[in-house]
Design a binder for these strands. Structure first.
Length: 371
DNA sequence: AAGGCGGGGTC
DNA sequence: GACCCAGCCTT
């Protein structure tokens, strides 16, 4: 092994053994717990994951207990964490582990990689961290660290670059130290070799880092820009119950697939253009017509507030309109619609944007004007 | 190869 | 605001 590679690996592991953070998933060797942590950590920061991880393994301590749990309860434990297909895929995968592998997380690369929601990074992480197998686990941190140290100019937004860096990373794994080395790489990326203003003076491998020696820390890694999110205007109906439904609000469940699958929300629609918003009245009448086509006869009353939410790929600008249901006593609700009040609010799973709106409404801060 | 898929921290 | 995070799946 060439000189700088050996230097990199040994100094990095030495640093990690001294500086490693005490994280919940570093206190266990249970492959299932390692697995859960790696799924939660996909595109999600450590500090965000910690409370979710603790609650999740407390409620679902084993593969079997997760496999047998109601999907709704699994989703509830994921609420607010984002990328909800991770939760669905994880439960589907543990059920496969029960059915095909007797409830034991498999140790073969092909079997681990075949599990739902387990891609190249997560497979490498499970195999190395749980079983100490010399497999690379290349995430955004690792691509950044290795691009800088070795002066790699490849665009890390390209899939081919990850494949190349996996080859580099695999060669660097010290014999018998796959778990520590892979975690050390990511730890360095998270704590020292950060995207902006890296802490080079305290870096354990600074003396042979290509980027630092050339003063190019800010130029590496090379990464092409993502497309900006698409802006969308949406109108939502906050339909207030009357009589025995006083204090309740009409909500609906989203479809089984796609964005925010199976989560609950205020009924809302994408506006065809700004023209529906020429006036409050035109917005109200447009909303009434659209919902009438879905079999929901509402009377929109007033514009009572706005909510914004940015996803990776789109930005929602939601105008919230107060409304009532026509002939509420005899009205038949379309499928997937439901009345919800403060008392049963927590029995449903909400994306954050609607959790905020409804929480505000129920505590009286988001007050519709009365007809 | 490109786009869909959340939410939050940081600068 | 922009960027990006212990990425994966579908097309």
């Amino acid at each position: 092994m060439s000189n700088n590679k050996h230097y990199f690996s040994s100094e990095l592991v030495r640093w990690y053994e001294k500086e490693r953070r005490d994280l919940p998933w570093r206190r266990t060797r249970d492959p299932y717990h390692i697995w859960v942590s790696e799924i939660m950590l996909q595109q999600t920061r450590v500090d965000t994951v910690i409370p979710y991880f603790n609650r999740f393994v407390d409620r679902f301590p084993s593969v079997r207990q997760l496999a047998e749990a109601p999907e709704e309860e699994v989703l509830k434990h994921w609420e607010g964490l984002g990328y909800y297909s991770r939760a669905r895929n994880l439960q589907s995968a543990v059920r496969e582990v029960v059915d095909r592998y007797g409830g034991e997380v498999p140790r073969l690369k092909e079997e681990v990689s075949g599990l739902k929601g387990v891609g190249p990074y997560t497979a490498g992480a499970i195999l190395s961290i749980a079983f100490d197998q010399p497999e690379p686990a290349v995430d955004g941190n690792v691509m950044r660290v290795l691009s800088r140290f070795f002066g790699l100019e490849d665009d890390i937004a390209r899939p081919a670059t990850r494949v190349r860096i996996e080859g580099v990373a695999k060669e660097l794994i010290p014999h018998g130290k796959a778990a520590d080395f892979n975690q050390a790489l990511m730890e360095l990326g998270a704590m020292i070799c950060t995207p902006k203003s890296p802490a080079c003076p305290t870096c354990p491998v600074r003396e042979m880092c290509s980027a630092r020696l050339q003063g190019r820390q800010s130029e590496l890694p090379v990464k092409t820009k993502a497309k900006p999110p698409k802006f969308v205007l949406r109108l939502a109906a906050l339909v207030e119950g009357t009589g025995i439904r006083s204090g309740k609000v009409l909500v609906r469940q989203r479809p089984k697939t796609g964005l925010l699958a199976r989560m609950w929300e205020l009924p809302h629609l994408e506006a065809p253009g700004q023209s529906v918003w020429d006036s409050v009245e035109s917005g109200c009448s447009w909303l009434e017509q659209e919902f009438a086509q879905e079999g929901l006869m509402i009377k929109a009353v007033d514009h009572i507030g706005d909510a914004q939410h940015t996803f990776t790929h789109l930005h929602w600008n939601i105008r919230v309109m107060s409304a009532v249901l026509q002939a509420e006593e005899s009205a038949i609700l379309p499928p997937h619609y439901q009345w919800v009040g403060p008392d049963d609010f927590e029995n449903y799973v909400w994306p954050n944007v609607f959790r905020k709106v409804l929480t505000q409404y129920f505590i009286g801060m988001y007050k519709p004007s009365k007809p």
